[in-house]
Nucleic acid binder design. Structure first.
Lengths: 217, 217
DNA sequence: ATTTCGTAAGACAGCATGTCTTTCATAAGA
DNA sequence: TCTTATGAAAGACATGCTGTCTTACGAAAT
């Protein structure tokens, strides 16, 4: 039967939010503690001090849980600041600041993002649409940046906006970051410098004033 | 008790090799048919027309199977030709030919390699050491190429051999290929051109004669 | 003719997922 | 204060996959 009287939540709604948080934090922690072994909801439930069935009532499914984790990172992980960095008036500076912001964000959540991206590759609907949405936003951002680099006559001779979009898409991807960060054990600053230098040399005409070679290792 | 008399295989050894082949082909096929859903040994066994237990007696474990698949690709996938491409006298030409060979190999086995690499990231010992060995070979190859680019004075001013090795490592990775090939739906030729152009502009002094901008899309 | 070994067939335990039902405690409404 | 809606716990259950083990057969080698 339908509810016979209205019933607005106040305190208990907050409790529900807390439960959600505890569960999300538990998955996050589980991935940080054991980055390269499979996550079972049983462990997550115990870590969050929650019944395993509660995960299902709150997130609907395993995929829903990881989808929520992705959205959580998207909102709390500094994505919005990065978007603003890319959108600043000077496209060339936007390129560098965007890459820097990107790398910092990737580095801060490396293990969790690695798991999310790999899961998405391996099992299409294992993480809901979180990764897809995230990547689509990045694609649009890089297309826009490429167009603005072109409009501001920053691209080198022979480079088109389309080509620039491809290269930017490549160099701002999580995998590119991780290939250098984890694969070559470079610091975040060195990764930033490497990616930014590569992008500028590949796409832009020689800089008028800025020195663009990384110095630290 | 130990074998009481010597017993050399001839015909049956060949049959064993055939069985092994059928199983490896079945996993390969399974990954090509359903690239983004988990593989169960049950399906593989049915596809290979083999008892599931046979997979264990032949490969020891699930990880052993995928490890063998990786080794199989390494030997039959054209890796050796690629190594020779990189090692030719002219380092700069080795760079371009190496990238071209790399991309062709990645494209020919895209789905299977995607699965192997993602599995390796997600679960450390899910594919044995196949991916690690493969990647270590690539790392050494790129270190050597970077050194030779440096010795032949091909690197642009301000670029060191170490930096070149980092960038080459990045641009010859499977993930970089796939970011462009699958993520941007570029053809293998366009991916080759994009990666090679990016590498040259990022690392080399301006080419004396060769035109180095991709034309096709 | 006898022995060895690759393979089939299947039982079994362990673990994870997903669904469902029952129960409890607590805050909101009356 | 009394009732009701609801978040959450607890746990049973079916399903599917992995990994190990045992038994049995048939064909090739001796």
């Amino acid at each position: 039967m339908p509810p016979t009287r209205k019933y607005e939540q106040r305190l208990r709604a907050q409790a529900a939010v807390d439960t959600k948080r505890r569960i999300l934090d538990a998955v996050y922690q589980q991935l940080v503690d054991a980055p390269s072994e499979p996550v079972s909801l049983d462990k997550v439930a115990k870590l969050a001090e929650v019944a395993r069935s509660t995960i299902y009532t709150v997130f609907g499914s395993r995929a829903g849980l990881f989808d929520a984790l992705g959205m959580d990172l998207l909102h709390r992980g500094g994505f919005t600041g990065m978007v603003h960095a890319v959108l600043q008036p000077d496209a060339r500076q936007g390129l560098r600041d965007g890459i820097r912001g990107n790398v910092h964000m990737y580095a801060a959540h490396r293990d969790v993002l690695r798991a999310l991206f790999s899961m998405a590759q391996l099992d299409a609907d294992a993480v809901g649409g979180a990764v897809q949405r995230l990547e689509q936003g990045r694609a649009e951002g890089m297309n826009g940046l490429a167009r603005r680099l072109h409009e501001q006559h920053t691209l080198r001779d022979g480079a088109t906006a389309d080509q620039a979009a491809d290269v930017l898409w490549l160099l701002t991807g999580f995998d590119s970051f991780d290939l250098l960060f984890t694969g070559r054990r470079l610091s975040t600053d060195t990764v930033t410098a490497t990616l930014a230098d590569t992008a500028e040399h590949a796409l832009c005409r020689p800089a008028p004033d800025t020195r663009q070679d990384r110095t630290t290792r």
